[in-house]
Simulated assay, not measured.
Amino acid sequence: MESKRNPWWAAVLIGAFVVFLAMSDGGSFTGAVILLLVVGVPLAFIVLVVRALYRLGEPRPAPVAFVAPPASQASRSAPNSGWYNNPDGDGERWWDGLDWTRRPK
């Protein structure tokens, strides 16, 4: 299975670097945050658009198909468990919902 890359840490490092550069010249923290918003948000948007355009050409995995399991013998409207006329002879025999028991009543 191919691993997906998620470089969230790169965005954090770039943001910290921009704040550091803005504050290194004696600027305020507020100015650094504004610079980060003015530069970082449009840059992130551009990166997301380029990534989306790049991924348009990638092949998609096959869709997952859910198939209902086949109906079991018990769910095919089998009679409920109980005493029924013995199909092999006299008397009654116990039907357990799936099969006849050995001993008649």
Results as ranks from 00 to 15, higher is better:
17 F>N: 00
24 S>M: 15
32 A>C: 07
3 S>V: 06
84 Y>K: 01
86 N>S: 10
87 P>Q: 02
66 F>A: 09
2 E>P: 13
33 V>H: 07
5 R>W: 04
90 D>A: 14
76 R>L: 15
28 S>N: 08
48 L>F: 13
20 F>Q: 03
79 P>R: 12
99 D>T: 05
85 N>H: 08
98 L>E: 15
55 R>H: 12
77 S>A: 14
100 W>T: 00
81 S>R: 12
94 W>N: 01
9 W>R: 14
74 A>T: 08
25 D>V: 02
104 P>W: 01
51 R>C: 06
21 L>Y: 02
20 F>K: 02
46 I>E: 12
9 W>I: 09
72 S>F: 07
61 P>C: 05
38 V>Q: 07
24 S>V: 08
91 G>N: 09
78 A>V: 05
26 G>P: 06
75 S>Q: 14
69 P>E: 11
37 L>Y: 03
39 V>I: 09
14 I>A: 10
70 P>A: 04
93 R>Q: 10
11 A>M: 09
65 A>T: 14
95 W>A: 04
21 L>D: 03
7 P>L: 10
83 W>T: 00
101 T>I: 03
99 D>W: 03
86 N>F: 05
48 L>C: 10
47 V>P: 05
30 T>K: 13
59 P>T: 05
104 P>A: 08
54 Y>N: 11
7 P>D: 09
99 D>Y: 04
23 M>R: 01
77 S>P: 03
9 W>P: 07
69 P>Y: 06
73 Q>L: 14
17 F>L: 09
36 L>I: 00
43 L>N: 01
73 Q>P: 10
44 A>G: 13
76 R>M: 14
52 A>K: 14
100 W>P: 04
5 R>K: 07
56 L>Q: 14
34 I>H: 01
64 V>H: 13
95 W>N: 02
54 Y>M: 12
56 L>V: 08
97 G>M: 02
96 D>Y: 00
52 A>F: 14
14 I>V: 08
86 N>A: 08
23 M>V: 04
11 A>C: 07
92 E>M: 04
26 G>F: 02
94 W>K: 01
28 S>K: 07
51 R>F: 12
42 P>D: 09
35 L>A: 08
59 P>M: 05
39 V>H: 03
34 I>D: 04
68 A>I: 08
10 A>H: 09
26 G>E: 05
98 L>W: 06
13 L>I: 00
11 A>Y: 11
76 R>P: 06
19 V>A: 13
105 K>H: 03
63 P>V: 04
105 K>L: 06
87 P>E: 00
78 A>N: 10
81 S>L: 13
88 D>E: 13
65 A>G: 07
71 A>R: 15
47 V>W: 15
28 S>W: 02
15 G>S: 15
81 S>I: 02
84 Y>E: 07
13 L>A: 01
8 W>K: 05
24 S>F: 11
78 A>K: 11
58 E>V: 01
83 W>L: 06
54 Y>G: 06
6 N>R: 09
46 I>Q: 13
